[in-house]
Write a protein that binds this DNA or RNA. Structure first.
Lengths: 360, 360
DNA sequence: CTTTTTTGTGAGACCGGTCTCAAGTGCGAG
DNA sequence: CTCGCACTTGAGACCGGTCTCACAAAAAAG
C-alpha cells in the first residue's frame, strides 16, 4: 500500500459546479436518464467538455448493480480453438457494449474455481465457462448470475449451453475409417482420466470427451471391432513425455492403422511423431482430427478433419448469455451445432503389410 | 432499464451485525487491514462464513482507486501471434492477482480509441496496447495510467515497450535470400499503407512494419539490388481480394523468386497461393516468414522462419507494466528481444529457368 | 502510582455515481 | 383569476466498501 497516486479525476459534482446546477441535474444529463431542459443540458455538456469529464464506470456499476462486463473462463487461449471462440465472444460482446474479462484455467479445476471467484467478486454480469471437469462442478452450481457453457455440456446444470454434435461427428469419422477397412483404430485425446478407461463413461471428465468416445465406440461396435476401449489414449497434452508415449504407440508392432485425434494440438503432435517414426500418411496410417486448424490443409498429405463451427460456437454462447442479461428468461437453451467432415487425403485403406489381425 | 434483479448480497454491515461488532471492525478483518484482536477477528470470520460473505471488489476499487485489472488491446486474438502473447500476459497477471480485460482493435485506430476509452472508464490500473497506427496516437498520449507497448514501438511515446529486433531479423532473413542468389525478392505484409510506398518510411503505420522494411531494403542494397521498394506489397490481410492479388503476383512473368512474409497468416495464404499456381517451394520460389507458427514445421517442405519469442514478449510487457503498477518509477524501458532464424527447407537457390534478370 | 504509549473499537465521512422525493415553475383549462 | 398538472430542478440518501479520527482500555514507562 503506497500512497495512492490518486489522479484527481473530474466528477459529476465538478461539472455541476462549473455549470452552476445541482449535482443531481448534472448527473442526469451526464448519465442520460431523467428529464432535463435543453438549455441546462447544453450548459452541462459544455462544462463537461471544458473540464474533460470522463465518467467512472466503477461508480456507476456500484449503484446500478451491473458492471457491463462478462467473465470468460477457457482452458487455454493459446489453443487456436479457444482463441477463435473467444474472438466470436468478444465480437458479440462489443456490439452490446460489454467487456470481456478473460481467464485461463489451464484445464485445472482449482484454477477455474479461483478464476470464477475473482470474476464474481468483480461483479461480472455473466459468465461463460468451459468447465474443466464435469465431476467437480459445485462451484458452478453456486453461481447466481447468468452462466453459459461453451463447448462442454453439463447434464446436471440446466443453463444455456452451446456445443457441437461431438458424438455424431466421432461416429461418422470413425465410420469413415472402419469403412476403409481399418480395425485397429485409436482415439487420442489430451484429456486426462483418473485411472484407466474401462468403459466407465461416468469417470470421463468432460462431456465433449465422453460424447466423442461414445461415438467412437459405437462405430467400432458397428464394425464388429471388439475391445476398442483399449485403444483410447488419454493425457496426450503437449509435453515431451506425452510425445514419447505417442512414439511408443507408433513403434509398437500392433500399432493402430488409423487414428482419430481429439484436437488440432494433439493431431499436430501426432503428425510429427508419425513422421519421426518413418511412417507415412495415409499408406501406413490414416489420420482424422477434430478442428479444421489452419495447418491441416497445407501438410502433405492434407489432413481430413472434422470441421467445427468454432467462431459461431463463441458467437452463439455470447448471444445466449447477453440475451439473458437483458432480462430474457425463457428456459435455458442447449444448442448443438452441426459439424462437417472435410475429406482431404489422410485416410487410406488398411495397409496390407500389417494385416495381422488382432481381433474378429 | 428493467428492474434490477438485485441479488441481495451480504455486506460488511451484515457481517458486523451478525458478529455484534461495528461495521468498521468487521471491515478491518474482512479487508485485512488495521489491527484487530484475535477474539474479535475469529468472531467476524465465523459470522462471515455463516453468512457466506463475498467481498464486492467494485466497492473496494471505488475507494482504493485501484481496480486490480489491466486492459489489453491487441489487433486480433485469433492470430496465433497475439493469442500466444496474451497467454504470456495473463499468466504473469494471474501471478499478481490481476485480471485481464481483453479488447480487439481489429487493427483499426477508431476501434482502438473506443476500446481504450471504455477500459479507462472501467478504471483499469494499466494498459497494454499494440498500437494499430503510429500516425494517430493522440489518444495514447493522453493516457494517464501506466501504459506499455507490445510488439510495436512508438518513438514519440516514452513508455515501457517490448519489441523484437525486427529490423535485424528482416536483414538477416533477406540476406539469406540474396546469398542464395535471389534478386527479385518480395516483402509481403498485411499492414496497409495510405497510398503507395515511395521510400516514405514516415508514412508506414507501425514501427514493426517500418523496421522490417528497413532491414529488408538494407539487405537488398547490400546485394546491389535496385528498386527493391517496388517489391513491397501491403494489404495482404485475410480476404479473397488479397488472395487474388497474391495469385496475380505469382502468375506474373517477372514474379519474385523469393518472398519474405511478415506474419504466419500472410505466409499461409502465400503458401496456398503458391501451390494453387502450380509453383514449388523452394524450386520455383523461396519463402521465409516471421513467426514460427505450428504449421510451418509440418508442410512439405517445412518453412524457414524467423522465430520470435512471442510468449516472452507478452510475459515481459506484463512484468514491466505490473512493476510500474507497484510503484516502481524508474525511467521507461525499451526491451528489444532477439529473434533467431530457424532454417528449414523453403529456401533454395535462384531458379535458373526464370533467370531473366530485371536488374543490375 | 501516575504518566505516556500502545492497542482495539466505534462513529461517521468519503469515493463517484444513481435515484427518490419534494418543491418550484409555467401553462392551459375551467 | 384560480386550480391542476406536467415539467424541471435541487437536496440528500444510498451502493459497499475504505479510512480517518476520537476515545477507551490496557500495557509500558517513569
Amino acid at each position: 500500500m503506497k500512497r495512492p497516486p490518486k489522479a484527481p479525476s473530474v466528477t459529476v459534482s465538478d461539472v455541476a459546479r462549473e455549470a452552476k446546477v445541482s449535482k443531481a441535474t448534472a448527473a442526469r444529463v451526464l448519465g442520460g436518464y431523467g428529464r432535463v431542459s435543453k438549455t441546462v443540458r447544453a450548459a452541462v455538456l459544455e462544462a463537461a467538455k471544458a473540464l474533460d469529464y470522463r465518467p467512472n464506470e466503477l461508480a456507476r456499476s456500484m449503484t446500478t448493480g451491473r458492471s457491463g462486463s462478462i467473465g470468460v473462463v477457457v482452458g487455454d487461449i493459446e489453443n487456436p480453438f479457444f482463441s477463435l471462440a473467444v474472438r466470436g465472444i468478444s465480437d458479440v460482446a462489443r456490439l452490446s457494449g460489454i467487456n470481456v474479462i478473460l481467464a485461463n484455467s489451464g484445464e485445472e479445476v482449482e484454477a477455474e474455481k479461483s478464476a470464477i471467484r475473482v470474476l464474481l467478486a468483480k461483479q461480472v454480469d455473466g459468465l461463460i465457462v468451459t468447465p474443466a471437469q464435469s465431476g467437480d462442478i459445485a462451484h458452478l452450481k453456486e453461481i447466481t448470475c447468468p452462466l453459459a457453457l461453451l463447448d462442454r455440456a453439463l447434464p446436471e446444470l440446466d443453463v444455456d449451453t452451446v456445443t457441437v454434435d461431438d458424438r455424431n461427428a466421432a461416429l461418422r469419422a470413425t465410420r469413415m475409417l472402419t469403412q476403409a477397412g481399418h480395425r485397429r483404430i485409436a482415439y487420442v485425446t489430451a484429456a486426462v482420466l483418473s485411472g484407466d478407461f474401462r468403459g466407465a463413461e461416468s469417470r470421463i471428465n468432460t462431456s465433449t470427451v465422453r460424447e466423442r468416445i461414445l461415438g467412437f465406440l459405437e462405430a467400432c461396435r458397428e464394425a464388429g471391432i471388439e475391445g476398442a476401449e483399449r485403444n483410447i489414449h488419454f493425457g496426450s497434452g503437449r509435453s515431451d513425455s506425452a510425445h514419447a508415449v505417442l512414439q511408443r504407440l507408433l513403434r509398437n508392432a500392433g500399432r493402430p492403422t488409423a487414428i482419430l485425434a481429439s484436437d488440432s494440438v494433439v493431431a499436430l503432435d501426432l503428425f510429427k511423431a508419425i513422421r519421426e517414426c518413418g511412417l507415412s500418411i495415409p499408406n501406413d496410417i490414416s489420420l482424422i482430427t477434430f478442428h479444421d486448424a489452419d495447418w491441416t490443409s497445407v501438410t502433405t498429405p492434407p489432413i481430413t478433419v472434422i470441421d467445427q463451427p468454432v467462431y459461431v460456437l463463441g458467437k452463439s454462447v455470447a448471444e445466449l448469455l447477453i440475451r439473458r442479461l437483458k432480462g430474457d428468461d425463457r428456459p435455458p437453451e442447449r444448442i448443438v451445432l452441426p459439424t462437417t467432415i472435410i475429406e482431404r487425403m489422410s485416410v487410406g485403406s488398411r495397409p496390407s503389410q500389417s494385416g495381422n489381425r488382432s481381433d474378429s
